[in-house]
Simulated scan of single mutants.
Amino acid sequence: MLDVNRMDRADRRRRGKSDPLDTQNAARAVLSGRARARAKAGDGPVQIARMYKLTKVSAVKARTQAINQLKSVRITADPALREELAGLGNAELFRTCAGFAEVSSYEWAGEESVLQATRITLGLLAHRIGQISEQIREVDTRLARLLEGHAPQLLEVVGIGPDTAVALLIAVGDNPERLRSEASFAALCGVSPVERSSGRSQFRRLNRGGDRQANAALHRIVFTRLRVDPRTQNYFERRIKEGKTRREIIRCLKRYATREVFHLIGQPQSGTRSSGDVC
């Protein structure tokens, strides 16, 4: 099975868009040799990690929404209640609000007041935040256990944590052999250099294509190393003295990180490396 990229936009504007036309264009791409990439497999541990990642992303989004709603209700609450909750950190705020729902469930009698409804709302939102946080912790535990069994070498590299490792593994898929070289992996992650030279000026810029989640993971690796890795810091200072811009240096560092990650993903579990010496 081969992977066919999106059809040419100019051709679509001329001929229109339909399922039969897309099928014909895909067949032409395969027969002409333009579509040579093998499709990503989804029948192994990386697919399991992708399922967990989807769950975590939606849970984080729902928790953020619940937190925003709780703080919005607090702002518009009765002045006495607002004063009671003022100055509390997030953890203490959620614990205090969670107690409102438990107390209100026993004290309710007769006609409900606005203040009581506000306290119940805060309590229910706090309980929802706690439940979603527990789900996120469970998914994190499962992802960590999966990574320790499938790709522990990634976690030993400077700047790579569980979330970053999962994003890079998902970009590669369960069949990393489909990527013929580190250059193809760099193109997949959107860190292959793009020429923007003109006349005597020779420049390359960051690639705006590729898998944006994998690109963001490499971005986190680079900026983590710029904070904590002396060799990356020395590299940055040396290239600044050579006249390179910050954007150009980051592009180079992301490309070097891609090279290291590519060789680590292609290695068996016993072949681990423990340094961030790509810079």
Rank of each mutant, 00 (worst) to 15 (best):
P268S: 12
G42L: 13
A41W: 09
P268M: 04
E83Y: 08
G173N: 05
E182S: 02
R13V: 15
L218Q: 00
V73C: 12
D174Q: 08
L143Q: 02
Q269G: 07
R180I: 08
R137Q: 11
F203T: 12
G149Q: 10
S270M: 06
S275K: 05
V194F: 01
S184F: 03
L264K: 06
L253K: 02
A98K: 04
L169C: 07
R128Q: 15
A39Y: 09
G87T: 06
V228C: 10
G243H: 00
L147G: 06
V4G: 07
R14D: 07
K56L: 01
K40G: 10
N68A: 14
S32D: 01
Q47N: 13
K53N: 06
C189I: 02
S18P: 11
K71S: 06
R205T: 10
C252R: 01
L154S: 04
Q24D: 07
L54P: 03
C189V: 04
I240F: 02
E92I: 13
D78K: 14
S72Y: 08
R205W: 01
A109M: 13
S104Q: 13
R15Y: 11
V30T: 09
A41D: 13
R9Q: 07
A10T: 15
A216L: 03
R119K: 15
H150P: 12
V73Q: 10
S105C: 12
S184T: 04
E111K: 06
R227L: 11
S192I: 06
L2F: 12
V139F: 02
F262R: 00
R204Y: 08
A101Q: 11
R50H: 00
T118G: 13
P45T: 14
S270P: 04
N25D: 04
S201G: 07
Q131G: 15
S197Q: 06
G44Y: 08
S18Q: 14
V103L: 14
N175G: 11
R251C: 03
Q202N: 08
S198H: 10
I170G: 05
R119S: 11
I129V: 15
F223V: 10
I48C: 11
